[in-house]
Design a protein around this nucleic acid. Structure first.
Lengths: 340, 340
DNA sequence: TTTAGATTTGAAAACGGTTTGGCTGTTTTG
DNA sequence: CAAAACAGCCAAACCGTTTTCAAATCTAAA
């Protein structure tokens, strides 16, 4: 059923029908009611491709999916979905073919030129991220999930990584820990830098000299959590506390501790960042894991919301949100063991 | 830059340009070469919405994302993306608003009517899944990831869940285990039934009476893995082996065993199904986890491939793939402890 | 040298909507 | 009471392609 046929059915012109359904004011309420009702009854739905062609709107917002198969990704998207289900907006997942830099720029460029999306969400930006300048140049609306120092106006939402890790580290110091290790995310991304700042800041406040031997970074995997924690704990002067970047990392850290006969929460304290997953919760780990917590899903929902506002014309420069992060203390943190 | 302008630039009619770029045979190779080259140079790309309107193709395949925030989902999509990046095809993620049944049907119906996707991938079907009959009725091409007994012709790809669990269970029986527990996925889905069949089949072959007290099912979370394993192991006559449905479940099972002072691989054997995640590997668990293994990512890639073939006109009835599942033995399985 | 046949090309008609501008009546205003 | 403002509706142009049908050109056969 197309507009023309449907219009004939209700005895109106296509113009009026279109306006009635799109909520334009030039049509009387009684007519609008009749039209919407008939549309539902006869099952008329405007052809989405025609609408998109005519209006120039794509009806979708794009998310570029990295190669790494991040487990965070699904949660973020689930969150976005929660908000977008109400809107007539889809989520378009764009696969990243190559980790190559030039190639990634080319991907974004093609995505913009193809006009398949109305906006793009950029994840894990770097302090000066070329994607941001590119999108700005190309005039494509976008929202950055994370932060960047780049000198280009842009909307963003981020969590307070620095504050979170600072508080976590400070708390460990308060518990008497002096040798504290940190497993960060892949170097380069702003969030990793912020976390590093928080870590170093707390150490400095506590009068502790940071030890490069106690810092490592890499993908958020169980594997790396284990390897790094092992290497820390096997040093001559091992740390008594470890700050881990993710739940998966924490799993590896726990495993490393166990493998060395150390008890988490007594021999070695652990705090990790928890993005809140339905399938793996900090509270359920043994011992339960102290964590800095911020819901990835909620971030997805809010990002979707902000993108919608952005597209509705809200000013770029107003859209900056910095979320606080909770620190939840559980059993994995305890007083530093007295040196033997 | 639109077609008209571009055509003027190359000194040809829009018709010829369109044909040249779409690979039609009626245009001479020398012209085609010139056109493609110029298109690249001037950066001309057909407006995707116009193409879609005209051709009726949506250029996207849809995946409905459940509420549960499955961690498998991201891997599957990453796999799809790997294949689809070459095609001019997007992945459209459709959020499921409500776990309500009627509502889900309505969602599919609207999705089809909106013509936003050329095909749909249906996950975790039930033996008689109403989504399948609906899509068939509506004439929307679709591929089922999983299996269904429904009497409607449809393309599918599935892994041999029954065989996998049968082998896993048989192996445990060969090791001398007689009390074997099983943690299955959410009841209802065909895969859960198949796994159950494999489990019961193996027990029967081994002359073992299945004990309802040793069977449980639910979402694949660490939490449930723990709870179920605890309840099994605390029974008066506890199992000496547990078959777990997923990696997350296995994490919970390990935790339960540890919490009871049992050593996995000696006091209690564990086999789980591993969908192969980059961030959590069976080999790295402690002790390393014996697993039935099948790559979710590979399944995603292949499903995308099959959908493309389906859309290219390959017959429904030819597209049935049943993938074998590896059984990889590691340290978490050992001979049944001799009764004390 | 025609002529039929095969290649290439182009003009114009879709595809299914939205939106501009104009056209009626009807109500308000000076 | 005439002029102006307004409400409600419609015809037609347009969005940027693909594709049908016809025409032009070239090649090979008669």
């Amino acid at each position: 059923m197309k507009l023309k046929d449907f219009a004939k059915h209700v005895g109106l012109s296509p113009t009026t029908v279109s306006r009635a359904l799109s909520g334009y004011p030039e049509v009387s309420e009684v007519t609008r009611a009749r039209v919407t009702e008939e549309a539902a009854r006869l099952g008329y739905r405007p052809n989405v491709n025609a609408v998109r062609l005519k209006t120039g709107r794509a009806g979708a917002i794009g998310v570029v999916m990295g190669r790494a198969g991040e487990f965070h990704f699904a949660e973020f998207m689930a969150g976005m979905a929660e908000r977008l289900v109400a809107e007539e907006t889809d989520i378009l997942v764009i696969p990243m073919s190559d980790p190559d830099q030039d190639d990634e720029m080319e991907l974004y460029r093609r995505l913009v030129e193809s006009r398949r999306v109305d906006a793009i969400i950029v994840h894990s930006p770097k302090p000066s991220d070329p994607r941001i300048s590119l999108l700005h140049e190309l005039g494509m609306p976008f929202l950055v999930h994370g932060r960047s120092d780049i000198d280009v106006p842009h909307a963003w939402l981020d969590i307070d990584n620095e504050g979170a890790i600072r508080r976590a580290t400070s708390h460990l110091i308060d518990l008497g820990h002096r040798r504290i290790a940190m497993i960060n995310g892949r170097p380069g991304a702003t969030y990793a830098i912020h976390r590093d700042n928080g870590f170093r800041g707390a150490l400095q406040s506590g009068g502790i000299e940071p030890d490069p031997q106690l810092q490592a970074s890499g993908n958020f995997t169980d594997e790396l959590g284990f390897r790094f924690a092992r290497s820390f704990l096997e040093q001559p002067n091992p740390p008594t506390a470890i700050v881990a970047g993710s739940m998966m990392t924490a799993l590896g850290v726990y495993r490393a501790a166990r493998s060395l006969g150390l008890q988490v929460g007594r021999d070695v304290s652990v705090i990790a960042h928890d993005d809140v997953f339905p399938y793996l919760t900090a509270d359920n780990m043994a011992p339960s894991l102290s964590a800095t917590r911020s819901s990835m899903r909620a971030a997805g929902t809010r990002c979707a919301d902000l993108v919608i506002q952005l597209l509705a014309g809200r000013s770029l420069t107003e859209i900056h949100e910095l979320w606080p992060v909770e620190l939840i203390l559980r059993e994995s943190t305890g007083a530093a063991p007295s040196p033997r």
